[in-house]
Design a binder for these strands. Structure first.
Lengths: 224, 224
DNA sequence: GGAGAAAGTCAAAATTTGGTCAAGAATAAA
DNA sequence: TTTATTCTTGACCAAATTTTGACTTTCTCC
């Protein structure tokens, strides 16, 4: 999922430039040309905000404080001001970083990445894979069919995780073994077949449908 | 509790100056004059690291990457380098900010505050309240079941703190050991099992319910 | 349709893992 | 110092999982 970045600045030339550049790097960008517009666009829940300090109407610092009452995400100030006191004020207002114009676009991207990465680290959302009413929560290692939690052993879950994270792809038994056990299987082994059987049985009992498909002579595939 | 800041720099004059200044602002400071020393001092669990890029031996960027494998805390680079590429490299290496020498002490403090505040916001609720009447106060290191205070030893509380701060996530024994003891366990150890047993017993006696769940083959999880 | 290969099934054996206990070592308190 | 508390270790048991081997079924190609 692409990260959403909100740019708040009243200079159309700059916002246009930034917007394009960020989009080239895979970000979803929305632009606000005024404080009011910025507040209105908060409901798009941006993952990061670039905020110009010099804005007509409400000052960037003020705006920052207001934003902080609404959402928690990295806020980076863009500004031409350079005195130390300005920096201090910006950070005290609840900003997370301070980039002085003119700035290099590469540096900007790197800083954005650093902040997003940081944010990710701190409060990563649960990774969830879903298919047809089945919810697979990878970080909690839990599987639900509607309200009901299904229980799987370690190996079983590992196999489910691997297959469901790569839906519709066919993997032969050696490949699955390698991915789940971490090393190559020696000789012919019945292990995979047996685990697949267990998994299928549990999923079938709960949901009544098949999730793992056999591709004859090739391997198994997670249907999505 | 005072924040702990680790300064990594090989210039004694600078570290001395910084150290004094930070202490004046109420921080607990430890100094490492080399990469090896820095790594050794990681187990003091600093809340923030100031890292010089130009160091003899392991480069600051390298060091940063290594540190990132151990702990999660803001890392601020200190350096005389100023090219944009340098900044980009620093941030990519896992750093959170980049301060070029010479820098103002006020700005430094402000940036430190901003990062710590940020960290606080993200992952340090002052107290964790779990479901049925159990209150875990992390700053006072006290646990209450309704009105009654439960007593836990240091290790026991550390484990409770770690698990309950990351509810629903499964941690294997090595991971718990690393988080609580600050370094890797050597060989198989029974310590975690034993402490978990003690904790469970106390919680069960007081509240009559299980808070720590065993995930077979994976580890333990704090139920929430 | 039949041979042979691949996949599925089942139950039992083998292994791994977690829980418990008791006692020694280490640490803190008195 | 003595004493009490906490931490760690090793042994053992019980439970759960994983693997195995024998067997049956299904599919493909001749």
């Amino acid at each position: 999922m692409a990260y959403k970045i909100l740019i708040v600045d009243d200079e159309p030339i700059l916002t246009e430039l930034l917007s394009t550049h960020l989009q080239d790097h895979g970000y979803t960008v929305s632009v606000a040309n005024s404080s009011d517009e910025a507040l209105a666009k908060l409901n798009t829940k941006p993952n990061l905000i670039l905020l110009d300090i010099n804005m007509p109407g409400m000052d960037g610092l003020e705006l920052c404080k207001v934003i902080r009452n609404h959402i928690v995400c990295p806020i980076l100030f863009l500004t031409a001001r350079i005195t130390e006191q300005d920096k201090v004020n910006g950070l005290r207002a609840g900003g997370d970083d301070y980039i002085t114009k003119p700035f290099g676009l590469q540096e900007l991207i790197a800083r954005i990445e650093a902040h997003l990465r940081r944010d990710e680290r701190n409060n990563r959302p649960p990774e969830v894979v879903t298919s047809q009413g089945l919810i697979i929560n990878l970080s909690d290692r839990k599987v639900f069919w509607n309200e009901q939690e299904l229980s799987f052993s370690k190996r079983e879950f590992d196999i489910i995780e691997f297959l469901s994270s790569n839906p519709n792809q066919v993997f032969d038994k050696e490949r699955i073994y390698e991915a789940v056990w971490g090393y190559d299987a020696e000789g012919d082994s019945n292990v995979i077949k047996e685990h697949i059987r267990k998994i299928r049985a549990k999923l079938m009992q709960a949901s009544g449908s098949e999730y793992i498909e056999t591709v004859w002579g090739m391997g198994y595939r997670w249907k999505k």
